[in-house]
Write a protein that binds this DNA or RNA. Structure first.
Length: 273
DNA sequence: CCCCAGTCCTGCGGGC
DNA sequence: TGCCCGCAGGACTGGG
């Protein structure tokens, strides 16, 4: 999503519009008027990412933070519809005419923080190391004393930032680790393998422009559907044959109230294999 | 501290 | 055909 909005860099924010919306409003921080005041007239200096959040760095040391959660989109193209359009930022002096935030369920948020506010909110410990750059040693050090299931731990953004429910199942299948394996039971070798698979799955998903599931919500910054759902090995594939062993059927379970998919043959043991 | 369950939100789809 | 209800999950909260 971040990559798709690069054409906003260098732009100047001409106006900030919260379109009238009959739905429950999304969260805006610090509040609507401060948000608008902080954005207006500023120049977009660059882009960043913090786990699943998209960062837009502004002049004056402010940072605009998009948190899309499941159904939010950061767009530089027409949104899927107007009824769920939550924020419209009109731009000048850059390739993109506008930067939009669209969110069907409204669980996402937009924030604009000063450097010190940003530091406070995302102080050390709030978010773990980014999943794309975490090392096996960091993962092991953070989790080896935990008795939680590895699938649940991978979703904990304080431990490692950037892995969502869908990708946790895919990562563990590729790493051939049973999702209920207690973190403390994983060997050094398994942490190394796990880190490799985290990077492999996430980079693959990014190449495919993400997963557009059956509800059709996820889109890239140009409102184009992703293709990673066609590459899923286990997610949402309960009952179909495992593409790795081509023998067992994919099983669905629930861990920490989240759907979890795995192959009982490839991800057999809790502690070895 | 560690960990889990409940909560928020909207639209889709299964069941009847 | 239409209605109702369960479900999807990322982050946060409260509590054991």
């Amino acid at each position: 999503m971040k990559r798709g909005i690069s054409e906003v860099v260098g732009g100047k924010i001409a106006s900030v519009i919260f379109p009238p919306c009959k739905l429950q409003p999304i969260s805006v921080a610090p509040n609507h008027s401060t948000f608008r005041r902080r954005l207006k007239g500023r120049t977009i200096r660059g882009l960043g990412r913090l786990g699943k959040r998209v960062l837009v760095h502004l002049s004056g040391d402010f940072t605009l933070i998009f948190e899309p959660r499941m159904t939010g989109l950061v767009l530089v193209a027409s949104p899927p519809n107007l009824s769920h359009l939550r924020l419209k930022i009109l731009l000048e002096d850059c390739e993109a005419q506008e930067l939009l935030f669209w969110d069907r369920r409204g669980l996402g948020s937009v924030k604009c923080y000063s450097a010190s506010e940003f530091q406070q909110v995302y102080e050390q410990g709030q978010l773990g190391p980014d999943a794309l750059v975490v090392t096996a040693e960091e993962l092991e050090t953070r989790l080896k004393r935990s008795r939680r299931a590895i699938k649940v731990a991978l979703l904990d953004q304080k431990q490692v930032a950037g892995i969502g429910n869908l990708y946790a199942s895919e990562i563990l299948h590729l790493a051939r680790i049973h999702p209920e394996t207690p973190c403390a039971a994983l060997t050094r070798q398994r942490w190394v393998k796990l880190r490799q698979c985290i990077v492999e799955v996430l980079e693959e998903a990014i190449r495919y422009e993400g997963s557009t599931l059956s509800d059709g919500t996820y889109r890239n910054a140009l409102n184009q559907a992703g293709n990673y759902q066609n590459a899923h090995r286990v997610y949402d594939r309960a009952g179909s044959t495992c593409p790795t062993c081509e023998r067992s059927e994919i099983v669905r379970t629930v861990l920490a109230q989240r759907s979890t998919f795995f192959c009982p043959r490839c991800q057999r043991s809790m502690t070895r294999g």
